[in-house]
Nucleic acid binder design. Structure first.
Length: 334
DNA sequence: CTTCCACCGGAACCGTGGGAAA
DNA sequence: TTTCCCACGGTTCCGGTGGAAG
């Protein structure tokens, strides 16, 4: 059934990106100064999750890298890094600039010096920039003449509103690329591409991809997760072919896959807070804290737990809160 | 209607760990 | 070496708010 496992991974970048040709051209255009060895303009990419932001950024970077014969660039997902210093460190390391540095205790200033000392332009891709611990990072990098950034965020208005004015003007001056949710037809095309690249297509029955696309609601990441789950079932002989019913059967498992991947990166306390919400399904703020406090030997304070909840809701989108003040309740994000 | 209080979230503050300067 | 500074995760403090009880 599966003859190319890589094609089913979320980070797989197909040679041809479906339905993003326009945005790809804009991004390529913005990067053309690199062909002459000059740093390009900064770029911001906005779009809901699963709309292909990360994929087109990586895709274009790799294409431009091929065309220019190589230049320094780094990628970081701010969700995966907990501090500003971590973000700088990952970028410098990923850009392959200099020896791997000690992570601990390095000041922000010396990271910036690291960028400055690079003789050529460096492009840094800052993914999940909504979660950036310190938004000033974009302004600081803006001041480094040989560094250009591509900032990726979900919500344009929310992102800009959170910036302070000095940073905002710099971010606003960047080239903007906006992506919309994929339509059902577009998602079907994308899925078909993965099928062609990695699956025994005669086992994929008609209507199955449409079913996946329908359930994924415009989110390519979810769609591919469902496809992967379903293909595995066939691979393991738990199903004879990939049809609509199989898609229905694996959807919730696939969503668990996507969620589990995020949960893996949470710290002990935040994970416990999330587990409590997951087990309860829905829980009041007071009960949640009581439960949390009773289940761990060194509980954080209520304020800190509220910060965790804020992060789980706004950044990870794993939970959802309703009501205000005394009526506040937390539930699993659906 | 008034009072109470559970909860929210901003701001200031604190202890720790590590590099840099003296 | 000693002192100073910085980043970071966490806490303390507190004003604001709206639902529920009186």
């Amino acid at each position: 059934m599966i003859h190319n496992e890589a094609a089913l991974r979320p980070e797989y970048i197909p040679r041809d990106l479906y339905h993003r040709e326009g945005q790809i051209e804009v991004l390529k255009g913005a990067l053309t100064p690199l062909t002459a060895g000059h740093p390009p303009d900064n770029v911001t990419i906005f779009g809901p999750s699963g709309s292909g932001k990360t994929t087109i950024a990586k895709y274009v970077m790799e294409r431009v890298e091929e065309e220019t014969g190589g230049f320094a660039w780094g990628y970081v997902s701010c969700l995966a890094e907990s501090s500003t210093a971590d973000v700088y460190h990952r970028l410098l390391e990923d850009a392959g600039h200099g020896v791997p540095m000690q992570r601990q205790g390095v000041t922000i200033g010396s990271y910036l010096d690291g960028f400055r000392s690079c003789p050529e332009p460096i492009v840094v891709v800052i993914d999940e920039a909504d979660v950036l611990p310190d938004r000033g990072l974009l302004a600081k990098l803006y001041e480094v003449s040989n560094v250009s950034w591509i900032a990726i965020a979900a919500d344009e208005h929310g992102f800009l509103a959170d910036l302070d004015s000095g940073v905002e003007s710099r971010v606003r001056s960047a080239e903007t690329i906006t992506l919309d949710r994929y339509s059902i037809d577009e998602l079907v095309d994308i899925l078909q591409g993965r099928v062609d690249a990695g699956l025994a297509s005669h086992k994929v029955k008609s209507g199955a991809l449409e079913e996946i696309a329908d359930r994924a609601r415009g989110n390519a990441r979810d769609a591919i997760a469902i496809l992967r789950r379903a293909a595995r079932r066939v691979q393991n002989d738990q199903a004879s072919r990939l049809n609509r019913q199989l898609v229905v059967d694996v959807e919730s498992d696939a969503r668990e896959d996507v969620r589990d991947q995020q949960i893996g990166s949470l710290g002990t306390h935040m994970r416990l807070v999330f587990e409590i919400v997951r087990e309860a399904g829905e829980i009041s703020a007071g009960d949640l804290y009581d439960d949390y406090e009773s289940r761990i030997s060194d509980p954080r304070t209520g304020r800190t737990v509220r910060r965790y909840l804020e992060k789980l809701e706004d950044y990870y989108e794993l939970i959802h809160s309703t009501g205000t003040t005394s009526g506040t309740r937390y539930e699993l994000q659906t």
